[in-house]
């Protein structure tokens, strides 16, 4: 049985860019370990070996779009909700390489 510890929760939190306070991480790890045990039980069905994974219920072919420019010239609308801009650019705290 897989055991999720606090460190795993914190690692996931970094990947997901979500902050998890120490005490929450503890609780989450415990709950999640239980949940995974429950899921693990349910995945023991031998029939699983016989089927392929279902990604989506949609079973029609992918539509292809013609190569035409039909969007753009809307920087004001694109920027209209932004919390921080310098004319025509979005701004974020300085990124360092």
């Amino acid at each position: 049985m897989i055991k999720i510890d606090k460190e795993t929760i914190k690692e996931m939190a970094v990947w997901a860019q979500v902050r998890v306070p120490e005490e929450e991480a503890e609780v989450m790890a415990k709950e999640f370990t239980e949940t995974l045990a429950w899921i693990g039980e349910r995945l023991k069905d031998p029939d699983l070996q016989k089927v392929s994974p279902m990604v989506s219920p949609f079973d029609e072919p992918i539509p292809l779009r013609r190569d035409e420019v039909i969007e753009g010239n809307q920087s004001q609308e694109i920027l209209s909700n932004a919390p921080d801009t310098i004319p025509d650019f979005f701004c974020v705290p300085k990124m360092v390489e």
Binding site: I2, L36, I39, R42, L43, D45, D47, L48, V51, S52, P53, M54, V55
Partner: peptide, 12 residues
């Protein structure tokens, strides 16, 4: 271990 098997269960 979880996501793909869950997708398979979805097929079932």
């Amino acid at each position: 271990d979880y996501f793909v098997p869950a997708q398979k269960m979805r097929s079932l």
